[in-house]
Design a protein around this nucleic acid. Structure first.
Lengths: 207, 207
DNA sequence: CAAATAATTAATAGCTCTATTAAATTAAAT
DNA sequence: ATTTAATTTAATAGAGCTATTAATTATTTG
């Protein structure tokens, strides 16, 4: 067993498992396969994590928390205009997805296996109103009252933002299978949709 | 073996398999489980379809074609206004998803197993321009030229429509796990988003 | 009714997977 | 240097799954 670059075996296992679980999900990834890619005996996976489920949970929780923290994190945006603030939120959300394009699919497919995570997600959802959500909502209402934005609820606005951003990355693997794209083309497409999503949303909000 | 309501065993197998494959995907559905729910011997599944893969392909192809035909079908819309036509397209797409809420997830997760379907999808994509797409595009360009719609490409418009509509149904199972909804609440939510998606898109297109 | 065909089941081979155990090897500590 | 502890492997039990085969039951047909 060659431990590359000072990493412990446990870390290597985690890295390989993360990659495989994100690629293929829980069911299609075997501890046998993880071990083969790590270059160790299959029993070693169980020595460190006892069960495949445990190993998966470690990775799922990490990704899950990182992702939702990223989504709900209160950005320090100072006293800029609401539309600029919104633009920033949309772009941050988009970039988070771009850096973690497989997480939404992982959560959509595997959350059912994770009753523990559902509790955490519920709590997270209760935290938001007091944070970014309340602040944005106040501002949104002000903008609407002053006739600078058409009447829309924040929940609908956020739903549309999440839909537009998430859908791109969830559908991307299918798009790539249908019309094989070069890495450059793919990059261009993503960059274009980043602009487009912002514009689509902001244009829709005009009074 | 009780064949319910005049149905042949083969039909019952197809129905049960369809339900299970849509619920849990290919990997998590076993022929053993299908047989149990059908109420027959597991070998019978293989008697009719030889392999699990064959059975899956029958269902996948059916759902796949039905879904994309529905999406790309040229509607008979007469000589109505462009925005009304667009509204109709968005709503038809939404309703198709509402009636087949699990198909997007099936395709997103299992298309990789279906190289044959990818060819079909490619062909379908080449058919569109000559049909609905070309027609809509001409009209869209006219609307833009006449200043009735802001400048936007049809591909971006369609991408946003698909994103908004598909995302709702792909995310719905997660939403339901987080905040359990009554059937009525769920219906209301879907009805509301149907209106909201149309409005969001039409509002965004204003010049 | 008898023969032939179709539908169904029981049994099982052969895989792959998870998880455990005991043994072997390596590293750390005294 | 020897003991102790940590890491790793080999071997394997046990389960579930797919697919096949041969035998059995039901249905159709001449």
């Amino acid at each position: 067993m060659d431990i590359k670059n000072e990493q412990t075996t446990e870390q290597v296992i985690l890295e390989v498992a993360e990659r495989l679980f994100l690629e293929k999900g829980f069911a299609l990834t075997s501890t046998t396969e993880i071990a083969k890619e790590v270059g160790c005996n299959q029993a070693l996976i169980h020595y460190y994590f006892r069960t495949k489920e445990n190993l998966f949970n470690v990775i799922f929780e990490k990704k899950f928390k990182m992702f939702f923290q990223g989504v709900f994190e209160k950005q320090n945006m100072g006293n800029i205009q609401f539309t600029d603030k919104l633009k920033f939120v949309i772009e941050s959300h988009f970039d988070l997805l771009k850096n973690n394009p497989r997480i939404p699919t992982l959560i959509l497919n595997e959350l059912s296996r994770q009753p523990e995570q559902i509790k955490i997600l519920r709590e997270k959802l209760h935290e938001i109103p007091e944070q970014l959500f309340a602040e944005l909502n106040t501002e949104l209402q002000t903008e609407i009252a002053n006739g600078r934005i058409r009447n829309i609820s924040l929940i609908d606005l956020v739903t549309s933002m999440i839909s537009l951003n998430v859908a791109l990355f969830v559908m991307m693997p299918v798009v790539e299978k249908i019309l094989p794209l070069s890495e450059t083309q793919k990059e261009q497409m993503i960059a274009h949709r980043r602009l487009e999503n912002v514009e689509f949303i902001l244009k829709s909000l005009r009074p």
